[in-house]
Write a protein that binds this DNA or RNA. Sequence first.
DNA 1: ATTGAAAGGTGTTGGCC
DNA 2: GGCCAACACCTTTCAAT
Lengths: 157, 157
Amino acid sequence: MSENMVLDRKDYLIMQFLQENGWLQTKELSARIGLSNSATAQRVKLLKEAGYIESAHAVVQRDIMGAHLEALFLMELDKHDEEIVEEFMREIVQLPEVLSAFLVTGRHDVVVNVVAQDMLHLKKLAFEQFTNRPFITRIETSMVYASRHSRVLQPLM
Amino acid sequence: MSENMVLDRKDYLIMQFLQENGWLQTKELSARIGLSNSATAQRVKLLKEAGYIESAHAVVQRDIMGAHLEALFLMELDKHDEEIVEEFMREIVQLPEVLSAFLVTGRHDVVVNVVAQDMLHLKKLAFEQFTNRPFITRIETSMVYASRHSRVLQPLM
DNA sequence: ATTGAAAGGTGTTGGCC
DNA sequence: GGCCAACACCTTTCAAT
């Protein structure tokens, strides 16, 4: 029942509403999509079991966490040995300051989105966690004036 | 009660656990932090009312949404008139293909994280929504091989 | 902060259309 | 498949300690 589940419009609606608001209750959700409470709960359960709904996460205010500055590190790597790069990506995303990391083609090789308390913190982060590593040949730091995030991925078809 | 709330370690624990798993129930949460059910529910309610916990969002599998490709658009703008740029940021993050957008200092001016079904889709997106606009002077498209996201913002102090 | 109670929501299951 | 009813469990809010 989980692998080859066929999704209809109501399943996509459920996923859209739960992306917009992860705290939406079954009662409200069922009212919106026009199904009974139990039918809706069933679908949500199946969508989770099938892995189509992966997880949910609360979003907290940044300042309360001391994240007053945001930046992008645009980095170039020396050797693109897959193992090293994959391990590097896994490692950095564990750092409390790292929000996301992208392994990319083009002028840069890795783009990392970080937060920091202040410039001193950012400097220490850059030097002690990145400049540090021998396979990183260059880091360009772009300060972020403003960032916006869409938390809802809609069907593109 | 909402503005100048003093947060203790248990409040930070609550926020950490709810960032890791937005579906955590009060019962489980209270057991983890060592408080009674109702005390925990109270704290969560206050944290939400104070705006420290802003929202929650389910995360869905990308392929099911047809998002098979990911890219970064690294863009340079002609004139940095604040109104135009702010409006531009607001607009693009509404597009279904745009996951996030960063207004930054440095070599680039705006970095946009997008998804697309395929190369044709990506090309149309780039040309019809970005290259299009008169104030965008250059776009560099970096394909994303892999991306990782931390959904938990820890206190940096 | 805790306990206990009341009211309402949840999630599951079984019977039925 | 969806619906309904029923049941056990959990949540939320309140007052009292």
